[in-house]
Design a protein around this nucleic acid. Structure first.
Length: 428
DNA sequence: TGGGGAATT
DNA sequence: AATTCCC
């Protein structure tokens, strides 16, 4: 029988930072979201101060100034590299590794006894720590949902010492299902907890006991699958990590509330270009572009307006110029004076694979030549940006210091991916 | 007061 | 198109 392991890195972003900055060990450390918005990774010491995941960073500035806590900007280049290192170690010790997110990986095991699985899981737990410096917890069970649950247990219940292997239908599984809160189950969010509680379903065990057909009727197929998985029936597969996206979004808060159309246009152009780059990387073409703006929903004292508009492109394209052209039109049409906008972005929709794209019957030799010139130009831009660094060439020059640039006031060095940011070690 | 994604209804 | 859920 196939068993599924879930390896989950503990406070991943904080752990990455600590690998290269040992002085942060034992201190209350948090890593902030993109744009230094809120805290998304917390060391145990920071959690012990009662600070919760998602707390806006500005609410914690007084503690930072007093030196009581440390907040870092997120350094995705570092975390991405560390994630690959963790994956490499897993691949050495386990046959099939499926990345699920930057800090979680599923591992499949076939034909192991319970004792062998336990041994294997403990080995993964130890080797990842030893070779990457990142502490992880390992949960193993017959289904992904149960593996997630086993992982929660490994993390929360100290007796497990970071490793929990659940056998099908075992007494141990039953005990854990009863102990684990509903909201800790993979796929069960806040709203579902509310609705299920009313029905008397209060624990993971209750959900596992419920009639799946009933669950499907009153809720959804996804929750039915979750219920079945809790019983040990596998029905959730992994969509492959590097499958092409179905849509591509690029957006960001402007950094300050603004009604300045020039500023907004520049931000939207940036997002359009970044989106087009992502699109070309997956060898895709977009048939439509969506542009959205939004005011700050937390400022109920201000007028609210969150428009969006989809424009179909004249032809499926990955050409930044065509995408920016459409995005510019969309923006003109949704922008209204008199509102303070907080955020805006571009989504590329109806994506198709470039290599599978049928040439239209209306295509003339002329437009075919156009296409090739376009591809060549875009390719050249992408190559330059890849070789010389992002932003080396772009359509239109971004205003230096504009408010919509990524805010990252407390960024650490990308010490594992950039030669010029290698850590310095001083001998005494 | 993040920036993405996907699925369902 | 809106809601829900995930990390």
């Amino acid at each position: 029988m196939t068993m599924i392991g879930l390896v989950d890195c503990n406070s991943f972003y904080v752990s990455c930072e600590r690998v290269f900055q040992p002085r942060l060990r034992g201190l209350p450390v948090g890593v902030m979201s993109n744009n230094d918005g809120c805290v998304i990774a917390l060391s145990t010491e920071l959690k012990a101060l009662g600070i919760k995941m998602g707390t806006p960073a500005f609410e914690l500035q007084h503690l930072v100034r007093q030196g009581r806590i440390h907040l870092l900007s997120s350094n995705y280049e570092l975390y991405g590299d560390m994630s690959q290192r963790v994956q490499s170690v897993l691949e050495e010790f386990a046959p099939a590794v499926e990345p699920y997110s930057i800090d979680e990986m599923f591992v499949r095991f076939d034909g192991f006894t319970h004792e062998q699985l336990l041994e294997h899981a403990r080995q993964l737990h130890h080797k990842v720590r030893q070779f990457t410096g990142i502490p992880v917890c390992v949960g193993v069970a017959p289904t992904r949902t149960l593996a997630k649950l086993a992982n929660r247990a490994a993390k929360k219940i100290s007796a497990y010492q970071g490793v929990c292997v659940l056998q099908h239908d075992s007494r141990e599984t039953q005990v854990l299902l009863k102990k684990i809160e509903l909201g800790d189950v993979w796929g069960v969010g806040r709203r579902l907890v509310e609705r299920l509680t009313v029905m008397g379903i209060k624990s993971a065990w209750d959900l596992a006991q419920a009639n799946p057909k009933e669950i499907r009727r009153r809720f959804s197929v996804t929750l039915e699958r979750t219920a079945l998985e809790l019983r040990g029936v596998p029905c959730i597969e992994m969509n492959d990590f590097d499958e092409a996206r179905q849509r591509i979004m690029t957006s960001r808060s402007f950094g300050k509330l603004t009604d300045n159309l020039d500023e907004i246009r520049e931000a939207i152009r940036q997002h359009g270009q970044r989106g087009a780059e992502k699109l070309r990387r997956q060898n895709g073409l977009a048939k439509a572009v969506l542009v959205f703006l939004k005011t700050n929903p937390f400022r109920q004292d201000l007028h609210q307006y969150s428009p969006s508009l989809v424009l179909e492109l004249p032809r499926p394209t990955a050409d930044s110029r065509e995408i920016l052209h459409a995005a510019g039109h969309a923006l003109q049409r949704i922008y209204r004076k008199g509102y303070l906008y907080q955020k805006g972005g571009v989504m590329l929709l109806d994506l198709v694979d470039a290599s599978r794209q049928q040439l239209s019957l209306l295509d003339t030799p002329q437009s075919d030549a156009d296409r090739q010139r376009s591809a060549k130009l875009m390719n050249t831009m992408d190559e330059l940006n890849k070789r010389m660094g992002r932003g080396t060439v772009s359509l239109g020059r971004p205003t230096p210091g504009a408010a919509w640039h990524l805010r990252c006031a407390n960024l650490t060095q990308r010490c594992s991916t950039r030669w010029d940011e290698l850590p310095l070690v001083q001998a005494r």
